[in-house]
């Protein structure tokens, strides 16, 4: 009996504690009074302009000037991984690439792209992706992929670039088996030779090259129009474009700064642990940051890029619906051009 009472007491105490923590940690549900905008961003990790901004409180300071605030949320591996959070409104501004964004927009047109980053063309810049095979592989060119299995991330940059490469080489797409794997799953499938080739992107690419993989083709060798983008939820863009503008301004300034002093933007929070980079990885990241392009406002001309990515996906059944670029681009410069115009809205 006494035990039961004790259990009951403990569980009650636990429940009250639960309420306490969930309101403190969850915080996202309570918007700040409804007066100002709340930018809900995903965790920026341990490197890059946004991580630096989080540590220094730059966004908080700058957003305060326009009556807005920022809320840092959880961590997501990619745009695709963050989709559920964007749906539920737990994240309302995020970065990614056109390819996963069109996949999202085909199903739920509640975000718009307000910024793009032009592709890096400088041949001196380190490569950031590539179709890799093991050195002893019989695959010497894209043409040899016919009848092979290639790991790509579904509806993302990997799949886009593979389709683009196959089209350019004149290989019928249905002759190549696309195996859908996330970058981390692709790494182990490739390492254990369960797939013949793999389009390694972002962080996976330098890793696999360091392990001795041979590169067949890079995204830069193709007409890659899958630009890096930033997108925000419609309601935020419609009601508070000035807050989104501040976000983009800060991102632009810090990217500029990171080009000059990339070391400052690595290992921002921790220089130990799984997120910390050292040695060759650090050198690679610094070299990449030096060549980074600055994010810019979208213009009408960017519709071409969206059309090309969505068109390619549609042609090969990755996307079922069509995307009208006019519906998914948001001209932030025109809307939030002057602070007074934004304030009067």
């Amino acid at each position: 009996m006494r035990v039961a009472v004790a259990i009951l007491a403990i569980s009650l105490a636990g429940l009250t504690a639960a309420c306490g923590t969930s309101s403190a940690a969850g915080g996202g549900s309570s918007s700040s009074g409804g007066t100002g905008a709340v930018l809900k961003l995903q965790d920026p990790g341990n490197a890059g302009p946004l991580a630096y901004a989080k540590r220094e409180g730059i966004l908080e300071k700058r957003l305060k000037a326009v009556g807005a605030s920022v809320e840092w949320g959880g961590s997501y591996a990619s745009f695709t991984a963050a989709i559920d959070a964007v749906h539920s409104g737990s994240v309302n501004v995020l970065a990614g690439a056109i390819s996963p964004a069109v996949g999202y927009l085909a199903n739920s047109p509640d975000i718009k792209i307000f910024s793009v980053t032009d592709p890096i063309t400088d041949p001196a810049a380190p490569q950031t992706d590539g179709l890799v095979v093991w050195p002893d592989s019989p695959i010497k060119s894209v043409k040899d992929l016919a009848g092979k299995q290639v790991a790509v991330n579904k509806g993302g940059k990997g799949e886009y670039l593979l389709l683009l490469a196959l089209e350019k080489a004149g290989v019928p797409v249905d002759q190549v088996k696309r195996v859908y794997l996330n970058p981390d799953q692709g790494a182990s499938a490739f390492a254990t030779r369960k797939v013949d080739a793999w389009w390694a992107i972002v962080r996976a690419y330098p890793e696999v090259v360091a392990k001795g993989a041979r590169v067949i083709v890079h995204g830069r060798d193709l007409n890659d129009q899958d630009l890096t983008i930033a997108a925000a939820r419609d309601e935020l863009l419609d009601k508070h474009p000035e807050a989104v503008r501040v976000y983009l301004d800060v991102l632009r300034e810090l990217t500029e700064e990171a080009k000059k002093t990339p070391e400052k933007f690595e290992n921002v929070f921790l220089d130990q642990g799984p997120t910390a980079v050292t040695g060759a990885r650090l050198a690679q990241d610094i070299a990449t940051a030096r060549y980074a392009n600055i994010p810019r406002y979208v213009t009408k001309d960017d519709g071409v890029n969206i059309e090309q990515v969505a068109g390619l996906f549609r042609k090969y059944g990755v996307l079922s619906g069509a995307i009208d670029p006019a519906d998914v681009l948001f001209d932030l410069k025109a809307v939030a051009g002057s602070p007074s115009a934004a304030a009067s809205r």
Binding site: S22, G26, G28, G73, G74, D84, A85, S88, G89, S90
Partner: peptide, 10 residues
């Protein structure tokens, strides 16, 4: 559950 409770602690 994500659509019911969001992605927070709840």
């Amino acid at each position: 559950f994500i659509s019911w409770f969001g992605v927070g602690e709840t």
